[in-house]
């Protein structure tokens, strides 16, 4: 493989409408167990990407704001050093990777993750027999006692890379096969995925533009210094306070 890749995503909060298309796309692609009613009531529902909704103000001067939250694939990920068995580690492409068959379920990582994006299988996942036909054969079904989380759809990255090599071409920026499932689903183009080592990729250009002085880019809970590979772009609002950005 020529050169190194480093995967990153941008999330334009100003575009996000909270429609949940990404959530279900992720569940479909990654064999996420069905979150039935008891799981929600136990606060154990699994959504590798979830939409958080925040209220601001009260009727009639009220706002509801949406933001998608998922693994930030931090360069200095707080979840990694605490894993006693190296089940969670950083790979050469900047991904925070979870090795399921190393995981012993200590749950130290979820305890240390400030973004609360790691999900633990408290129960053995179950699907009725006919629904098992929809399971993606490229993705492991995790069993009880295993931690799981967003992988940036590593199976798609692998498959696309392999097919590109087979066909003697480079992986193209914005390839639908490379994009994580949530990115393809998002109807408003809130999510952009790509290789930040490639200066011509959309994500690199967005990073350069929006992380500059008058850009809208920020890191989620940036003060924690986790070095996320996900860049959020600020919501635009005429009622904004603080420093003005275009």
């Amino acid at each position: 493989m020529e050169g190194r890749q480093k995967w990153a995503m941008t999330v334009d909060v100003d575009r996000c409408i909270g429609c949940q298309a990404c959530v279900i796309a992720c569940q479909s692609e990654n064999n996420i167990p069905i979150s039935d009613e008891p799981l929600f009531n136990q606060r154990r529902a699994m959504e590798w990407i979830r939409i958080e909704r925040y209220w601001e103000g009260e009727f009639p001067d009220v706002k509801a704001r949406f933001i998608p939250i998922f693994c930030q694939h931090c360069d200095d990920a707080p979840c990694e050093p605490v894993c006693p068995v190296y089940a969670t580690y950083h790979n050469s492409e900047g991904l925070n990777v979870q090795v399921y068959n190393r995981c012993i379920g200590s749950r130290l990582c979820v305890n240390n993750c400030p973004y609360q994006v790691r999900y633990f299988n408290f129960w053995e996942p179950e699907w009725p027999e006919s629904l098992q036909n929809q399971l993606n054969p490229d993705v492991t079904v995790r069993s009880r006692g295993i931690m799981e989380k967003c992988t940036f759809c590593i199976q798609r990255i692998r498959r696309t890379g392999r097919e590109a090599k087979r066909d003697g071409r480079k992986v193209e920026d914005g390839d639908r096969g490379l994009n994580p499932a949530c990115v393809n689903a998002c109807p408003t183009d809130t999510l952009v995925f790509g290789d930040v080592m490639d200066p011509d990729s959309r994500v690199s250009k967005l990073k350069e533009k929006e992380m500059s002085e008058d850009g809208r880019g920020y890191h989620l809970l940036g003060s924690l210094g986790t070095g996320p590979n996900v860049i959020y772009l600020k919501k635009v609002d005429e009622h904004a306070s603080g420093p003005t950005h275009a």
Binding site: V13, Y54, K234, K235, V236, A240, G242, T244, H245
Partner: peptide
Amino acid sequence: VDEHRLIIPLAQRD
């Protein structure tokens, strides 16, 4: 909660 807009900061309209 996001009282201090740490999670969804706002940018002003142009």
